[in-house]
Amino acid sequence: MWTSKVLLVAVLSYLTYCKCNEEEGSPARLLVSKHILNKYLVQDMDIVIKYTLYNVGGMAAQEVVIMDDSFPADSFITAGGQLSVKIDRIPPGSNVSHTVVVRPTKFGLFNFSSASIQYKASENAEEMQNAISSEPGEGRIINFRDYDKKFSPHVLDWSAFAIMTMPSIIIPFILFWSSKTKYEAIAKQKKEKNIKDS
């Protein structure tokens, strides 16, 4: 009886150990998302790109390289951050984010494709694991002029309008004011004369 119980406990503990060991020892697996954090995509204005890496594996990912070649140099300039970076280690169950700001120099439809990631799935791994991030997809980059027409405060336009309308308001007002002061002065004189006569 005792021997069977001990055997059962031993088998169960071995199975649990195997399971734990498998979970802990499973190689690093990175889930990578690429997000565009913009309300509008406008030519010559900032586009914020955020890469989030989450390690769902049981081991730390080593020598992780994020590389994004999806922004051609003739259509985009990098305003802040780097499109190719490296991080030494991403521990299991943790996430890491990286942000870059680019500016499109051209407008039109653009396909925001994925970034490529390379990493070592374990400390002793000899080969690099290749991965790709999620794809934000197609987006229309608006012409700066169109955006400006819609969203700018149009201060210059309104000041030009004010300057143009000013003569038609100011000239009649000055004429009215001069005649008003003139007639008021005459009326005052008349009043004073009447008071003296009486």
């Binding site: 954090l37 509008y40 914020v48 955020k50 951050g81 780097q82 942000t99 700001v101």
Partner: peptide, 11 residues
């Protein structure tokens, strides 16, 4: 006006 989140980058 155009971005949904502010990016802070220091190199």
């Amino acid at each position: 006006m155009v971005v949904a989140e502010i990016a802070f980058i220091s190199e």
